[in-house]
Design a protein around this nucleic acid. Sequence first.
DNA 1: AGTTTTGCTGTCATTCGTCG
DNA 2: CGACGAATGACAGCAAAACT
Length: 295
Amino acid sequence: MNIKQQAHFDSLYQQHLSNLTLQGKRPATIDAYSRALRRISAYFDCPPDTLTTQDLKQYFEALIKSHSWSTVKLDRNGLQFFYRYTIEKQWEWLNIVKPPQVKRLPDMLTPSQINLLLNNTHQYRYQVFFFTLYSMGLRLGEGLGLTVHDIDSAGMQVHIRDGKGGKDRLIPLSTPLLNALRNYWKTHRHPTLLFPGLGNGRNSPMDRGGIQKALKQVLRDCRIHKHISPHSLRHCFATHLLEQGLDLRSLQHLLGHASLNTTARYTQLTPLKQKDTIVALNLLSSKLEIDWRSK
DNA sequence: AGTTTTGCTGTCATTCGTCG
DNA sequence: CGACGAATGACAGCAAAACT
């Protein structure tokens, strides 16, 4: 791009960012949608507002060859947003790119495998963290964001902040988890964070990559060859609660979302008699016999 | 259909023991 | 004391789900 084109691109890009913010998009979305604009402009080496439908077809044809459908989808949506909000053109997007439909079922651990996993996690911080994710069904980011002020030991509940889509929720706190969190906190005594990083990262939460790596190692040690990630603990939480007879509505509350398609699909249980959520939650952690790695 | 998150990997800079 | 490498964190990019 020459200097004039570059200036024009910069202006469009700034408008794009501004529109994303105005439409209330979350940081991850802004990230992805703005990358789409940078990528296509780099590909054609010109500002993105003069491209034709033919250009777009050519671009996506190349993109499908070089990248996964996940990336193609993000680019498609990002550019669609750009054309809708920043310039007037409306493309027939569906006719240009349409990702194939796929359905997958996640791998799952049994309660005894969870027990095995926790007992083979030899680093205390990861052991407590995995236990926290499993016993409250948290997303990775929700667990990392926990602060000491979120733990209401008098009311025996935990305030989960800024979950997916920026939503909060409250989750009953079991005694074993409270004890684990207290004992672990005493090892670092951070003024706010429950799971601070080490070294000079001590004022931000632990590293996600480290957590994922630690879990993979433990799975190898346990000779568990399923495809399991920290997020799987959330699936296990949901499935095990269903197996204990917790009803769907209560479970939806605990997970903080409305649809249970992914969770309900892989449990064969149809039943779901009404049962007290707290009782079920306590039952969940009382089934585990964890040898804590403290000190 | 569209949005938002996690998962995974690589790069680069910094820190931290420890060995010579 | 400095060199060295291992460990760690910040960050970015892409992939894959999860959720609305």
